[in-house]
């Protein structure tokens, strides 16, 4: 295992041309966690959204009226729940008939103003909207080194264009398939997005609903990269988006629902970190603390005395 994973800059402080209170360089591993130098410690991102109608009920119960107050939610992510990053999911763009890209740009500005944390943005998923939505998001975050998502094999040109124009990195997502992941990275490279601007999202199925396929793809991507495949030597991001709508959480007894939600996210996100993910994203605020603690413990593992 000789090669090293490319480092990707996320977030820009004042001195780096942005307004973040901290910035990170994810990646840099030359081994899998527990097997050598696993690079920078995985970051825990808390996901918030600009239209809570489609957000899991168990999270809305927890955050209460913050759900309607994007700035407040973002600030709480930093001050109450101590997340490393905020991931802003623009669920408004997923509504049928959405046609207000400017609103997407404003949401990005609002969150950037509310918190000092570096920002991951999950934009629209509709070719008709993408160009405008990603341009607006890219523009609103210019200089902040956002992590802009999501590029997919069928629609990567708009995200790539916005990232190139405004100096952001790109989240490249493929459906649980190491070969498709490599292909998308080649496509992005051939449209001008350099290796140090790509973060691989191998798509994470929820625990018990295909998670093991995602876990193995992450291990395969990392071992292939460490064995010399430069088109896979990028940091990875993992977000098991369906974790909180699975049956086990929905049908948990009231007093256990929040606990089950946290555990369902924790086991998947921690396993993703063990498989090499550089950023793990969760939606339930109480998962952030236990996850950061576990990741810190994992990273300080010294091996034999």
């Amino acid at each position: 295992m000789t090669e090293r994973i490319t480092e990707v800059a996320v977030g820009a402080t004042r001195t780096e041309g942005g307004t973040r209170t901290r910035s990170y360089r994810i990646g840099g591993a030359s081994a899998l966690p527990g097997m050598g130098d696993a690079g920078s410690r995985p970051l825990v991102a808390l996901e918030i959204c600009d239209d809570p109608a489609l957000w899991p009920a168990v999270v809305l119960e927890e955050v209460g009226d913050l759900a309607g107050d994007l700035a407040g939610w973002a600030r709480a992510a930093e001050e109450w729940w101590n997340a490393d990053l905020v991931r802003l999911v623009l669920t408004s763009t997923r509504r049928r008939g959405f046609d207000d890209p400017a609103a997407a740009g404003r949401a990005v500005e609002e969150v950037l103003a509310a918190t000092g944390l570096p920002l991951v943005v999950e934009g629209s998923a509709d070719p008709a909207l993408d160009t405008e939505v990603f341009r607006r998001c890219g523009e609103a975050g210019e200089g902040e080194r956002l992590l802009l998502g999501t590029a997919e094999a069928e629609r990567y040109r708009s995200v790539a264009a916005a990232a190139l124009a405004y100096g952001h990195a790109v989240v490249a997502q493929t459906p649980i398939d190491i070969n498709l992941a490599k292909q998308l990275n080649i496509l992005l490279r051939e449209t001008g997005v350099s290796h140090d601007r790509i973060v691989i999202d191998p798509y994470t199925g929820a625990l018990g609903y295909g998670f093991e396929y995602s876990y193995s793809v992450m291990e395969r991507v990392r071992t292939a990269a460490l064995a010399g495949d430069a088109d896979l030597a990028m940091p990875m991001i993992s977000a098991a988006q369906d974790s909180l709508t699975v049956k086990e959480v929905r049908e948990a007894p009231d007093e256990e629902r929040a606990g089950t939600a946290v555990e369902w996210e924790f086991y998947a996100a921690f396993a993703a970190a063990v498989a090499g993910a550089g950023i793990v994203c969760v939606r339930h605020p109480r998962t952030v603390g236990v996850l950061k603690e576990a990741v810190a413990d994992l990273w300080e593992g010294a091996g034999w005395p």
Binding site: L207, F211, E212, Y215, E248, G259, T260, Y267, A271
Partner: peptide, 17 residues
């Protein structure tokens, strides 16, 4: 607690298929 057990046994089921 039951939530931890449920999640842990599910992870074990997944990894060992």
């Amino acid at each position: 607690p039951h939530p931890s057990l449920l999640a842990a046994l599910t992870l074990r089921q997944n990894i060992y298929t």
